[in-house]
Write a protein that binds this DNA or RNA. Sequence first.
DNA 1: AGCAGCACTCTAACATAACGAGTGCCAAAA
DNA 2: TTTTGGCACTCGTTATGTTAGAGTGCTGCT
Lengths: 345, 345
Amino acid sequence: MLEINERAQRLLKKLVEAYIRDGQPVGSRALARDSGLNLSSATVRNIMIDLEELGMVMSPHTSAGRIPTTKGYRLFVDALLKIRPLQDQEVILLKNQLNINGKMEDLLESASALLSDITRMAGVVMVPRRDISVLRQIEFLPLSDDNRVLVIAVVNEREVQNRIITTARRYSPAELQQAGNYLTAMFAGKDLCAIRNTVLSEMSAAKDEINSVMQSAITMAGQVFSDAPTETSYVLAGQTNLMDFTELSDLAKLRQLFDAFNKKNDILYLLDQCLCAESAQVFIGAESDYEALEECSVVTAPYMIDGKLVGVLGVIGPTRMAYDRVIPIVDVTAKLLSAALNQRP
Amino acid sequence: MLEINERAQRLLKKLVEAYIRDGQPVGSRALARDSGLNLSSATVRNIMIDLEELGMVMSPHTSAGRIPTTKGYRLFVDALLKIRPLQDQEVILLKNQLNINGKMEDLLESASALLSDITRMAGVVMVPRRDISVLRQIEFLPLSDDNRVLVIAVVNEREVQNRIITTARRYSPAELQQAGNYLTAMFAGKDLCAIRNTVLSEMSAAKDEINSVMQSAITMAGQVFSDAPTETSYVLAGQTNLMDFTELSDLAKLRQLFDAFNKKNDILYLLDQCLCAESAQVFIGAESDYEALEECSVVTAPYMIDGKLVGVLGVIGPTRMAYDRVIPIVDVTAKLLSAALNQRP
DNA sequence: AGCAGCACTCTAACATAACGAGTGCCAAAA
DNA sequence: TTTTGGCACTCGTTATGTTAGAGTGCTGCT
């Protein structure tokens, strides 16, 4: 008897849809009426008991209707949900709202804002992973005062990273330029992680084989790439949208959630996990194992640069969200962002 | 009769202190007991009526005690409050928590976190005003591909700004270096605002008087400084701390406040106003005329670079805050930040 | 298996009452 | 004139009861 047959699935689907729509426990009568199956409420009740034993639904108290559990949502999303792809028209609308021009950071922010605006939930866009960044060019620039040198690294065509290092002695502009050329020739096209390893081994080995300027160059590169922070982060938008949902109206819960947004590492870890999947993914409620996300679902999709998955974007909202709408939106936004990142200015 | 004599002031002081301590309307009996003046509750009641007519206090409903109004807080802060300066020991504690090393942005974040941690409210640090920034050095760097040039401007010894511009034709590295030297010689030591104006007039006038590279340099500088965003912004920390205060437990109000934090411009405008004052300043409740800040007070103090006021930091919390503690904390933190910013690394 | 019917449970909404803190005001005391 | 004790009154809080309605679980009939 305890199987989820066609009929039970259909009822579960209707139940989840109704709950997502109205936000209130769904009773057997309403369900029987709307199911399309010609069943009486009593029969529906019997099926509900089965579904409850299977852990798909629960009732908040004796004389209330049923609401889906995490497991119920999971089945719904994986098997029952029919996502309707966006209309071309809607895609164009999204496209227009994405700020293509300008720096990468602006682009990410724009994508995040787009997600949050259109879903009325929180949008999140992970900054592309650094260890997949490719060095294009590196330059050393003398600063007017003492032994400080400004190092500029151009990465991925778009990004510029700079930092100031202090050197052992003062270098002439010519020396610095030579060092820059040397390193650029040596490392251009490689990813920063590989460079770091090469530089470190290079430094310990064969100290005296190369001439002094090159040696200095290596040493300086060591300073640049060694403790380089793994600055993976994300851009968040519309977190205040979450304050409008009644299921998050508990201030303590809400604070926990916002603190998680600020601390970043938990959310980041979650996003990082989504980086391997090729398409949209959904985390429902407590599945993510973070207390702060207990009442929330996260819908993510990865985006690409040069054909490689380098980041993830998504939407965070209450478990009770319109998955059929949100999933395609996230999916399309990821594709749009990929397109924007790959087109050279 | 309607004057605020010594005695009335003392009572108001006690009332505000009690309300800040307990967060509940203060009744005449308690006030009479704690005032130190040997008065009956009836007398206190009469005085309260006077204070109410003067707009210093109000009662939330008929049979409740009195709470201070904005005007009452104002008098309290301006005339009645005795701020006790921090102990040397406490100052050292603060100093140790400030992250002196690292980039300026880290320093500002550290100061903001410090403020929010120690006051358990929201800390805010304005990024130094750009128009007071002084150019040290400017360099042009060729990028490997087409006609794009990377411009690096070193500002205020610490900061590095960079942007990529697209040029009309391709320049050789030598040309670019020459252009950089020319502009550095011309503008080093001037503030960015002045530079912008000079460049713009220079561009329109005397197009043909100078040689072509210099002319190009001017044109490029025009690109760099023209639409340069007035990127005044701030670093916020601990906004979730505000969720613990019962007076902000109304979700709609809280959302308004958080939205204001995100939009930034209102808060920024407020902070900007504080830039002229030399020492700590307090905005109480609706004084700032922003609906979102209705229930909040803002305590600010300016900080300096090279003896000039360039930014403001502060604390945002509920109107009912321990001003005697917060004001000196903000004051000292501003001084510590000034010191950290001025000491050359 | 499916269904009607019924007793039961629980919540939400509303009414009612008791309590207590605190006020406003007045007349008496200082 | 100022201060004070006293007293009636107001209002929010809390506890308690009542009712209506929605929904369930179960039983026995088809």
